[in-house]
Design a binder for these strands. Structure first.
Lengths: 119, 119
DNA sequence: TTAACATATGAATATATGCTCATATATTAT
DNA sequence: ATAATATATGAGCATATATTCATATGTTAA
């Protein structure tokens, strides 16, 4: 019986390193949440929304004007952003105002910002 | 002639805020690159690769063992990571070793890490 | 040179995602 | 109550993405 890791035919895997890494990797559940978190920033429309709300609280209609996709499209994105805890909203009459629920989010955006800028 | 922003029917948009935001938004080209940058972290396989390589240089075969998708799948992801400047590689005989080309990348991962952890 | 192995790549596929259209809901004004 | 406005939501569509399969390329050993 051969219990070595049979990934590649030669089995000349770097077993120690591999096992160490396997043991240090966070659980899949966590990594999936991490991926989902970063997916938020992986779309320019959402980046624009976050960017905009960083400057001021805005209503849906404002965001439509700023970003230039349909009201429905904005609404859909705002819903996902709200579900992810990125934005919050308050209603005033017919108008729904959105703002950042977590200012720290913007720091993460900026770190990517910085990375893109000087590379 | 009416040159107000006709997004919503009532035109009762917050024109000042909207214009200010429009003027401060970075160019689309830049925001798209920013989105593409964050897309890297928006997939758990790529996160696993980055995470693994943070601990040690590994060959493709090792990563297959760690992550558990096909060799081809790993290779494809490594190619995109290389194109994005995240990893570099060196060949030793038949084996191709990959490592992080930019350690700072891991800091960004960790910031997301932290955000997920205490929210 | 031939065989074996490690990795890379093109094609195909299944799923995810972002957007729009049509329509529903919520709120206010008449 | 009815109309008008602002936003939300479900369905559908087109595109993007992650993965696998089959195969090509590069390298070493026999």
């Amino acid at each position: 019986m051969d219990n070595s890791l049979e990934v590649c035919k030669g089995k000349l895997i770097h077993k120690d390193s591999v096992n160490k890494v396997i043991n240090s990797l966070p659980k899949d559940n966590f990594l999936n949440r991490l991926a989902d978190f970063f997916k938020i920033f992986g779309d320019s429309t959402r980046i624009k929304i976050i960017y905009s709300l960083y400057y001021s609280e805005l209503c849906v209609c404002d965001l439509v004007a700023v970003i230039g996709i349909s009201q429905s499209g904005i609404s859909h994105q705002l819903r996902t952003l709200k579900q992810m805890g990125i934005v919050k909203n308050r209603r005033k009459g017919k108008t729904m105002y959105y703002s950042l629920d977590d200012q720290h989010i913007f720091e993460i955006l900026k770190s990517g910002f910085a990375h893109i800028s000087h590379v």
